[in-house]
Computed example of a mutant assay.
Amino acid sequence: MIAIIYGSTTGNTQDIAEKVAQHLGSENVELFDVKDVGLEIIDAFDQLIFAIPTWDYGEVQEDWEEVWEEVDNYDFNGKTTAFIGLGDQLGYAEWFVDAMGMLHDKVVARGAHVIGHWPVTGYEFDESQALTQDKQHFVGLAIDEDTQRELTDERVAAWCELIQPQLAEAA
């Protein structure tokens, strides 16, 4: 079973989490709003997908901010994790999906195995804390509902196809 843990102010991140759950099969996924359940749910799952939007100038979304320090209290050894980040690459080009990168770094520092790197091709941004070391990929799926909404369904479907075999292998 896969847990998708998300925080959503406008509803966009929740919508993306629900789309990912549909693609992965709702019988295989449980959705959790971090503001309702906190992080305790992490211990009950070995496969986790974290969905987090970036706010303003590279800030963590308010529900994630409430539990931000708690992430450091969890052991992610033996857990397979993937990340989804939402942001506005034109309006906030210097901070595109930064929160995803910041959460990724916290979770990796606690031992997580990460899957689901996503190519930067097709995005226009200046900077991002969510880039892999070679800067050719994001550490997870990058979604821009503000300026590239028309690409969201295609990106979600392709990313789910990418991670499904890795999730099955880790199960």
Results as ranks from 00 to 15, higher is better:
34 V>H: 13
34 V>Y: 11
35 K>I: 00
38 G>T: 05
42 I>R: 09
42 I>S: 08
43 D>A: 14
44 A>M: 15
44 A>G: 15
45 F>R: 10
45 F>V: 08
46 D>W: 03
46 D>V: 07
48 L>Y: 02
48 L>T: 01
50 F>A: 13
52 I>A: 11
54 T>W: 01
56 D>K: 10
58 G>D: 00
60 V>I: 15
63 D>K: 10
63 D>P: 07
65 E>Y: 14
66 E>H: 10
66 E>P: 02
66 E>Y: 12
67 V>R: 13
68 W>F: 11
71 V>S: 05
72 D>T: 06
72 D>G: 14
73 N>K: 10
73 N>V: 00
76 F>V: 03
76 F>H: 09
80 T>Y: 05
81 T>G: 11
83 F>N: 05
83 F>E: 01
85 G>A: 08
86 L>D: 01
86 L>H: 04
87 G>N: 05
87 G>R: 07
88 D>T: 01
89 Q>H: 09
89 Q>V: 06
89 Q>F: 04
89 Q>P: 01
89 Q>G: 07
91 G>M: 05
92 Y>L: 03
96 F>S: 01
101 G>I: 00
101 G>T: 00
102 M>Q: 12
102 M>P: 00
102 M>F: 04
103 L>W: 03
103 L>T: 04
106 K>N: 01
107 V>P: 05
108 V>E: 08
108 V>A: 10
109 A>Q: 08
111 G>M: 11
111 G>S: 15
112 A>L: 04
115 I>R: 06
115 I>S: 02
116 G>E: 02
117 H>N: 14
117 H>P: 04
119 P>M: 04
120 V>S: 03
120 V>M: 02
120 V>A: 05
123 Y>A: 02
123 Y>M: 03
124 E>T: 15
125 F>I: 05
125 F>D: 00
125 F>K: 08
125 F>E: 01
127 E>H: 15
129 Q>Y: 09
130 A>M: 01
131 L>H: 09
132 T>F: 13
134 D>S: 14
136 Q>I: 01
136 Q>K: 13
140 G>C: 05
141 L>Q: 04
142 A>K: 01
145 E>H: 12
145 E>N: 14
145 E>D: 15
145 E>W: 08
147 T>K: 04
148 Q>H: 08
150 E>W: 11
151 L>H: 14
151 L>K: 15
152 T>R: 11
153 D>N: 14
157 A>I: 01
157 A>E: 07
158 A>R: 03
